[in-house]
């Protein structure tokens, strides 16, 4: 283990550090600039330090209905999250056996992932307008976002089930468990922590989704749409303040999911039996 590290290690480590700086640097910069003084602009130098631009966010008239947009985004995120988890688990279970038509369905999932987002926006918008339905974030927006979150959820489930040891299920069945009991007491607990991952993808991808919601959200914007609108007509650090707040919110969500995932993993390890661990 204390073998000397080759020179390439230090080169790549430096490169990796630069990459991390490249990833996070801009976010940290706008974090700092959002505390710009009231006279300050979009770039350095800082003209004093204040929470002026955050306060501005709470004055309704100056920035439009961002709190309504935020609430809608969170509700939509939760809806998409639940749907993504349920549909992905069912889809994952379906794909454990090859069934007639599973091949084309698989390629459809891949298509859903790689199709240019603007096509979903345009197509769904056209269908709703031709049918005389009103587009709304909770109907057309919800469905459009699922075309983006479901492929991620399904790919995770495929990866999970590919590594799933069927012996556990057979053991349960041999001892007389029904199909439902096997699913409830054996399969779900084993795949439980990966469901947290699917949920994380479902919520955050929906919360930040923009391109597929553009023409499908209707008259009430979600938060990313509101921010997109602001990029064209807001030229003050208020947009950095909003960016900082929503990024902090995203980080909080990610942290919550990670903590839940780690504790559930620990609990599973603690409560799992030592069967199959060998005699040592």
């Amino acid at each position: 283990m204390d073998e000397r590290r080759p020179r390439s290690f230090y080169l790549l480590a430096a490169f990796f550090a630069l990459f991390i700086l490249f990833l996070y640097g801009p976010t940290i910069t706008i974090g700092i600039l959002s505390f710009q003084g009231p006279e300050g602009g979009l770039t350095f130098p800082m003209r004093g330090v204040s929470t002026h631009w955050f306060e501005e966010l709470f004055r309704r008239q100056s920035v439009g209905d961002i709190w309504g947009a935020w609430r809608r985004s969170v509700v939509l995120g939760l809806m998409v999250m639940v749907a993504t988890v349920v549909v992905s688990v069912m889809g994952g279970l379906a794909f454990r056996k090859r069934f007639l038509g599973s091949g084309p369905l698989f390629y459809l999932i891949i298509t859903s992932l790689i199709i240019p987002s603007i096509l979903i926006s345009l197509g769904v918008g056209l269908i709703f307008s031709q049918l005389g339905w009103d587009v709304h974030w909770a109907t057309s927006g919800f469905g459009s976002q699922l075309t983006w979150t479901l492929p991620f959820g399904l790919l995770i489930m495929f990866a999970v089930f590919n590594r799933f040891d069927r012996a556990y299920e057979e053991a349960a069945r041999d001892q007389g468990a029904t199909a439902w009991q096997t699913a409830r007491h054996v399969v779900i607990p084993i795949i439980g922590s990966s469901l947290i991952g699917v949920a994380l993808f479902g919520f955050t991808l929906s919360y930040d989704e923009f391109a597929r919601t553009l023409l499908t959200a209707g008259s009430h914007n979600t938060l990313p749409l509101e921010i997109y609108g602001m990029t064209t007509n807001v030229t003050s650090p208020v947009i950095f303040a909003l960016g900082t707040l929503t990024t902090v919110f995203s980080f909080l969500i990610i942290a919550v999911f990670l903590i839940v995932a780690i504790t559930s993993q620990r609990r599973r390890a603690r409560r799992g039996s030592d069967a199959g661990q060998g005699m040592v």
Binding site: V86, V87, S88, M90, G91, L93, A94, F95, K97, F99, L100, G101, S102, L105, L108, I109, T111, S112, I115, L119, I120, L122, G123, V124, L126, I127, Q130, G143, S144, L146, T147, L150, L154
Partner: peptide
């Protein structure tokens, strides 16, 4: 049959929000 029953929600979403939109376009 079981495969399609389990994949039904997925298929419906993709049908209505992926295939139909492309056909419409």
């Amino acid at each position: 049959l079981t495969g399609w029953l389990l994949a039904a929600p997925l298929t419906l979403v993709l049908l209505f929000f992926l295939i139909l939109p492309i056909a419409m376009i």
